[in-house]
Design a protein around this nucleic acid. Structure first.
Lengths: 331, 331
DNA sequence: ATGAAAGCGCTAACAC
DNA sequence: GTGTTAGCGCTTTCAT
């Protein structure tokens, strides 16, 4: 009841095992006739190559690992979907692991998988640059929504997107903004902050930064309370989840949105369109992010020792989605 | 630059390779002293076991595959999260694959992974019972939100949940219901329908079934239109996504919810609490579903030839969440 | 173009 | 408790 091996196929087809092997992994090195016969026999016998035996010698596993900072965040699901689809279309399997917002767990997960995958897709990694560099030195790595020198990456443009967002708020008459930041070691959070600060400066607005806040709905309450003390009229939350939490607290406290204050988020998750008021947010096509990242990773994994080629740093366009949580300033 | 193997460790520690192997995979069969020394040396050398070599001989991969019918559906997020967490806590890796609502793709994905995983978690499988039986005959399988004879499964209780839902609607004065069903080969959909029909009969209500509908927001429009033609005052949608689509169409057509008709969904996804009106829905603790399923799978994978033991069919409690989309009937 | 044979790194009898 | 050894199923030189 054990499954057939190349030996069985080789015997039945009257060829050597190496020929069977070639027929599967290097078809062009086998004459059309034998190849066809081998494949036919293999099919009849129900032969399927054993991926582990294959990996053991070839050191290629046809598997990619995707590490996400927090699997609970709906924003990742589109990315995961895009990545999974792209991986599948190249007959690659995607392993999904959760870092639970902890750099330690992230590193453990990575270590555990080092030998079993052809490359890593690190989404919103919380690892320090040095760790990333270290990993990238020995493995194929692509960063997602994070950049680091010498490592290929795909990010959604924040600079221009944040500029548009701030300009939007400015045009509504807001002159005092507050930025409710995300996790301390989030590259995206830092990146957004500098983009917002620069844009505000350029447009002559003031903006203060508060946080870090864990970007979940439940932490929005504290963020809202803190933001209210600043006297700002526009709150820029680190992401939609936090923004929705802010919205809730404001509603509970009788602060009207966008009557009294405006609120915006990032990511454009599904729920942003459903909450009340619906949320103005800076999003993008996340499935494309996942797809592009896998594409880069496949490239990198294909030519492991590309010491020369500069690491590609892809920047995909973001998209400002205006909804009902932002409006004219009343002050 | 090639990584160290048990041979290197064995040589450095002055023991046989088998001792090193045991120290890692069967610690209690090695004396405390040697074990400690071996592990220390291994650590110094930076040795990490090669999972493929391990899998090749032991036939165990420490990997589980989770196949979801549609990765886009937010309802799976929590399940995936629970499953991933539980798998990790037993040092198992979770491979996530998407069946894209297609039985053919589902089977392809499964076939591709047969050799590389210790078991399958099939979430809302669209495969016919025979295929499931065939797979279960040779591999460890646990079904999630689906039942089939002889295969362990975890489902959210629908029978009692649907009864409560229908009773809720009856108590609001609704006597004519319509059920907007999900995909044709969805076990859950069929199961809900019989539960709803039986409950309606028991309570003296009439209920008609429409569909199948693809359970996404965008298909809610057609479902709403069809439901309106029936004259029913309460619409039971196959899931929250479809229900939200129904809500949108009704709002667009000026039908008031719950003033004119009541609407309910299933799953209690995050968005159900955010839409307007917020959605009455039958949910449950989905993370528990994922957790329990992995637990069952780990058990099954541990004792592969448990021909005797009856397949466990776990039924976890569902939870009726009353929100603002259901109200008194005006007819 | 095809075959023979030596591993890849580990586990699992089986000895001692 | 520990060592010896024969594979697991495949890829990959090296011959032919």
């Amino acid at each position: 009841m054990t499954s057939p091996t190349i030996y069985d196929v080789a015997r039945s087809a009257g060829v050597a095992t190496s020929t069977v092997s070639r027929a599967f992994s290097n078809p062009q090195r086998v004459s059309a006739g034998t190849r066809e016969r081998v494949l036919r026999v293999a099919h009849e016998l129900g032969y399927e190559p054993n991926p582990h035996a294959r990996a053991l010698t070839s050191r290629r596993t046809q598997t990619l690992a995707m590490v996400v900072s927090d699997i609970t965040n709906p924003h990742f699901f589109e990315i995961i979907r895009g990545a999974e689809l792209r991986a599948k279309s190249s007959a690659f399997t995607l392993v999904l692991v959760n870092a639970e917002e902890s750099p330690r767990i992230e590193w453990e997960q990575i270590s555990r998988l080092m030998r079993s995958v052809d490359g890593f897709l690190l989404a919103a990694s919380r690892l320090p640059d040095e760790s990333l560099g270290q990993l990238a030195a020995s493995h194929s790595v692509v960063l997602l929504n994070r950049q680091a020198a010498g490592i290929p990456s795909v990010v959604l443009d924040q600079r221009e997107g944040c500029r548009q967002l701030v300009a939007h708020l400015a045009s509504l008459g807001h002159s005092k903004l507050v930025c409710l930041s995300g996790p301390r070691n989030s590259w995206t959070s830092a990146n957004r902050w500098t983009a917002i600060r620069d844009a505000a400066e350029e447009l002559g607005l003031t903006v203060t930064r508060m946080g870090p806040y864990t970007p979940t709905v439940s932490h929005g309450g504290a963020a809202a309370d803190a933001a209210l003390t600043t006297g700002a009229t526009a709150f820029i939350a680190h992401n939609d989840l936090l923004a929705i939490g802010v919205l809730r607290r404001l509603a509970a406290r009788g602060v009207r949105v966008p009557g009294d204050v405006s609120v915006s988020g990032f990511d454009d998750i599904f729920a942003a369109d459903l909450c009340t008021p619906s949320l103005t947010t800076l999003g993008g096509v996340h499935a494309d992010l996942g797809r592009a990242a896998v594409e880069l990773l496949l490239e990198a994994a294909g030519a492991p020792n590309r010491t020369g080629a500069a690491a590609q740093q892809l920047v995909l366009p973001s998209r400002l989605v205006l909804r009902n949580s932002t409006g004219a300033s009343t002050r």
